[in-house]
Nucleic acid binder design. Structure first.
Length: 682
RNA sequence: GGCGGCGUAGCUCAGUUGGUUAGAGCAGCGGAAUCAUAAUCCGCGGGUCGGGGGUUCGAAUCCCUCCGCCGCUACCA
C-alpha cells in the first residue's frame, strides 16, 4: 500500500538568486528522492516556495530602490524558473506573501497562544530614528564593551568573540545609515520553547535513520538548553500579528516561513479543487514528513518546527531531516557577497541540466563539505557521455544498422543474459534502498555502475562478430542491450529526468516504474526512434567560454538581478561596442531540421533547429523569398540563441538566424561541413 | 571563549557497531577490441589513513595531545 510522504525543500529566501550550493544541498537530493518515490508508486506531495518576508528583504529592496514587493516578485520568478530548468519537480511552488499563507500562519499563532505556548513581554531594543525601525542585532555596529574593538556587532564581537547584548555596545551605530540608535521599549510575543526541552530531546531519541551530523547539531543546541524565543518583530513587511493593539508588528519569519510548507500544500490541493485534502497529509500521524535543507537550517527544522507541530497537537511530526553540508567551489565557500558563487541561471544558460544534476549528486555534501570545480564537472559530464551515453548510442546505432531499427527477437537468453538481468535487478534494489535511506550520492554511483556493466556485457557478447557468425545470438544480445537501455532509463529516472525522457523517445516508452527495472518490457519487433547523442563532451578549459546572465548580479556587495542587461555597462559612447558586450551574444551553429510556412505570412518560415547540447527550438525568419524549404533543411547556419524571444505573426521565435542582406539577395551564413550543431561562433 | 566537525592514493570522495592483504571514480601506465561521441573492455595503485602518544590480541575507526582548515554559538533569512 502506498505510503503518504510530505517532502519539503528549504524555502529559498527571495533576496537573491540561487547557486549550485543551494541546488546540491536542498533541492536536488529532494527531487531525486521524490522522483524515486513516485516511481515506486508512493503517495508523495513535494512542496516548496519562496520565503519573502523579513527585514533583510526590506533592506535589500531599499538598496535597489524597489519596494519589498517588487524585489520579491523578481526573485520569486527567477528562482521558480531556475527550478523548472533544472527539473526540480515540485508539486507546488508557492510564496509566503499569498493570502492563504497569512491566514494559516495567523491561525497557528492564535492556536498556540490559546494553548498557552506563547507569552507576551516588554523589552528594550535599539531603534534607529532615521531609518524608522528597530534594528536587528546584526545591523548594529559599535565598540565592544569587553575588548574595546571597534568592529563589534550587536550580536557578537568579531575580535574577541564575546557574545554581546546590543544594548551593551558602546557608541552603537545603525549599520545601514550610520546614525546612533536609541533604546526604546516594545512588546513582543515569545514561543515557550523551553517548556518543550524534554519533549524534543525524547522525540529525537526515537528518530531512526537520522544522519549523525544532524543529531550532533541538535545535541549541541539541547545541551545549552532551549530558551523562549521572540516570534514577532516590529516591521511592516510580514504577516501581521492578528491581535488587537498589535499594529506595526509582524510574525517573525522563522516562525512563519516554516508554516509555508503547510500553506504551500493547502494551495496545491486548492488548485486541484480539493481544499480539504491537505489535512489527509498534514494531519495523518503516519505521514512521513521529510525536510531537505542545508545544515544552517537544522535547528529550525529539527527542533523548532517539530515543537510547533507537536504543540498544535494534531499534526504529523517530522520523520526525517536529511540536512546536507555545504558545497564549496574551488575550495571557497559559495557566497553572494564574496562573488564566489556559481549561479544556477548561469549554468543552465550554457549547458543542459542533467550533467549538473549528475555532478552535483555524485559530489553531494552529504557528510561533510565538498568541493566543486569546473574540472570536476567536466570529468563527470564526460563520464556520463562515455559510460551511459556511449552504451545507449552504440546499442541504438547497432540496432538501426543491423536490425532496421526494430527490436530484434528476444529468443533464448543464455547465461550472460540472465546474469546481466539478475545483476541489474540487484542493483535496482540496492539503489532504491540507498535513495530511501537518503544515501543519494552512493545510489547515483551505483546506477552508473550498472551502465558500466552494460558496456561490459556488450563487449563480452560482441554483437559485431555474431552479426555474421551467429545472427540469432546477435539478436538475443541486441534485444538484451535494448532492454538494458530501458532499464538504465528508469534507473537514472530520478537522477537524470531529461535524459530519461530522451531515451524514452528513442525507445518509444516513457513509463517510469521502479519495479520494472531488470525485467524485459520492450516487445519483439517494436520500432525504435532515431539515435540521439545524449551528452556532449566538454573540452579542457571549456569554462572560459561560459557566459553569465549578468556580471552585475553579484557585484556591489548586494544582489541586483532584475536589472536589464542592456543597462549594464555600455561605457562606450561612440559606435564601438565593448568586447564584453559582444561576448554576451551567444551565436551558435544550428542545424536546420524542419522548415514550415507560417500561415498568413508570405515571407516567413517557422523552422525547427538543432543546437546540439542546447537542444532544439523554434525560430521564425523571413527567408521565404530567398530559399525553398528543402534547400534550407540540413543547412548549418549561424543563430543568435540568447536574443529575447519574440512572437512574430503569432508564432514564437527563440533566436535569430544570421544572413547577409545586400543587393544580390539574402544568404545564410553557413558553417562548414565539419561544424557541429551547438558549436560557438565567435 | 564554549560546543562540534574535518584533514584517507596526483585529484574528487567512500569507509558500517575497532578485526583478514585500506576502497571507488577520474587522471597515469600496459594490453585487447573496433559496434560506439578516440568511446569501450581487461590488467596495473605499496597511500606513515595530518603529526605524536595511549588503550587493545588487533585502530583510519576509541582516548589524550599538537598542527592545519572550517562550522555553530538562537532575534539576517
Amino acid at each position: 500500500m502506498a505510503r503518504r510522504y510530505l517532502v519539503t525543500s528549504a524555502l529559498p529566501y527571495a533576496n537573491g538568486p540561487l547557486h549550485l550550493g543551494h541546488l546540491a544541498g536542498a533541492y536536488l537530493p529532494a527531487d531525486v528522492y521524490v522522483r524515486f518515490l513516485r516511481m515506486r508508486g508512493e503517495d508523495v506531495v513535494f512542496v516548496c516556495g519562496t520565503d519573502e518576508h523579513g527585514v533583510a528583504i526590506t533592506i535589500a529592496a531599499e538598496r535597489e530602490g524597489k519596494t519589498p514587493r517588487e524585489l520579491v516578485d523578481v526573485y520569486h520568478s527567477v528562482i521558480r524558473k531556475d527550478f523548472e530548468d533544472f527539473g526540480v519537480s515540485f508539486d507546488n511552488f508557492s510564496r509566503t506573501t499569498l493570502p492563504h499563507h497569512y491566514d494559516f500562519a495567523q491561525k497557528v499563532f492564535l492556536a498556540l497562544l490559546d494553548k498557552g505556548h506563547i507569552s507576551e513581554k516588554s523589552i528594550q531594543q535599539l531603534y534607529c530614528g532615521r531609518c524608522q525601525r528597530f534594528l536587528p542585532d546584526r545591523y548594529i555596529d559599535g565598540t565592544c564593551p569587553k575588548c574595546g574593538s571597534t568592529s563589534a556587532r550587536g550580536d557578537q564581537c568579531e575580535d574577541c568573540g564575546s557574545w554581546l547584548d546590543a544594548l551593551e555596545l558602546v557608541d552603537a551605530r545603525c549599520s545601514i545609515c550610520g546614525s546612533a540608535p536609541e533604546p526604546r521599549g516594545t512588546r513582543h510575543w515569545f514561543l515557550k520553547l523551553d517548556s518543550f526541552q524534554d519533549w524534543i530531546s525524547g522525540f529525537l531519541e526515537t528518530r531512526e535513520g537520522w544522519r549523525e551530523n544532524v543529531l550532533n547539531y541538535c545535541r549541541g543546541w539541547l545541551a545549552e538548553g532551549l530558551r523562549e524565543r521572540a516570534i514577532t518583530r516590529d516591521l511592516d513587511w510580514g504577516v501581521p500579528v492578528p491581535l488587537e493593539g498589535a499594529e506595526g508588528k509582524v510574525l517573525y519569519v522563522w516562525f512563519e516561513n516554516l508554516l509555508g510548507y503547510v500553506s504551500s500544500t493547502v494551495e496545491h490541493f486548492e488548485k486541484l479543487g480539493k481544499p480539504e485534502a491537505w489535512k489527509d497529509y498534514w494531519k495523518d500521524p503516519e505521514t512521513r514528513l521529510v525536510h531537505f535543507i542545508g545544515k544552517d537550517n537544522i535547528v529550525f527544522h529539527a527542533i523548532n518546527f517539530p515543537i510547533m507541530l507537536h504543540a498544535l497537537e494534531d499534526f504529523a511530526l517530522t520523520w526525517n531531516v536529511p540536512a546536507n553540508e555545504f558545497l564549496n567551489f574551488g575550495g571557497q565557500k559559495q557566497s553572494t557577497s564574496r562573488r564566489t558563487a556559481i549561479w544556477m541561471r548561469d549554468c543552465i544558460l550554457n549547458l543542459p541540466a542533467d550533467p549538473f544534476r549528475y555532478a552535483l549528486t555524485i559530489g553531494a555534501p552529504e557528510n561533510r563539505d565538498t568541493d566543486f570545480t569546473w574540472s570536476e564537472f567536466r570529468a563527470r559530464n564526460n563520464e556520463l557521455a562515455d559510460v551511459l551515453g556511449n552504451f545507449v548510442n552504440r546499442t541504438m546505432k547497432f540496432a538501426h544498422r543491423s536490425f532496421r531499427g526494430l527490436v530484434p527477437a528476444a529468443g533464448e537468453p543464455g547465461a550472460e543474459e540472465s546474469g546481466l538481468m539478475e545483476t541489474i535487478r540487484d542493483i535496482a534494489a540496492s539503489v532504491g534502498g540507498k535513495i530511501a535511506g537518503f544515501q543519494i550520492k552512493a545510489a547515483c554511483s551505483e546506477a552508473m555502475e550498472a551502465a558500466r556493466l552494460c558496456n561490459r556485457y556488450f563487449d563480452r557478447v560482441s554483437p559485431w562478430e555474431t552479426v555474421r557468425s551467429d545472427p540469432a545470438r546477435c539478436a538475443v544480445s541486441l534485444n538484451t542491450c535494448l532492454q538494458a537501455v530501458d532499464w538504465l532509463r528508469q534507473l537514472f529516472g530520478p537522477f537524470l529526468p531529461f535524459t530519461a525522457e530522451r531515451i524514452g523517445r528513442m525507445l518509444g516508452r516513457q513509463r517510469l516504474d521502479w519495479s520494472e527495472i531488470g525485467s524485459p518490457m520492450l516487445q519483439d519487433g517494436a520500432g525504435l526512434g532515431k539515435p540521439e547523442i545524449l551528452f556532449e563532451k566538454l573540452e579542457e578549459g571549456f569554462e572560459a567560454q561560459l557566459r553569465t546572465v549578468e556580471a552585475e548580479a553579484t557585484s556591489g556587495g548586494g544582489p541586483a538581478a532584475g536589472k536589464a542587461p542592456s543597462q549594464a555597462a555600455t561605457e562606450d559612447s561612440g559606435n564601438t561596442v565593448a568586447f564584453e558586450e559582444f561576448r554576451k551574444m551567444d551565436i551558435r551553429v544550428a542545424l536546420i531540421e524542419e522548415v514550415h510556412r507560417v500561415e498568413g505570412a508570405d515571407k516567413l518560415y517557422r523552422m525547427v533547429i538543432d543546437l546540439g547540447r542546447l537542444g532544439r527550438r523554434q525560430i521564425v525568419a523571413g527567408l521565404r523569398p530567398y530559399y525553398r524549404p528543402e534547400d534550407l533543411e540540413g543547412m548549418k547556419a549561424a543563430v543568435i540563441t540568447n536574443l529575447e524571444p519574440a512572437t512574430i505573426r503569432g508564432v514564437r521565435s527563440e533566436g535569430m538566424i544570421l544572413a547577409s542582406d545586400g543587393d544580390t539577395g539574402v544568404y545564410l551564413l553557413e558553417a562548414g561541413p565539419e561544424a557541429r550543431p551547438g558549436d560557438l561562433v565567435r
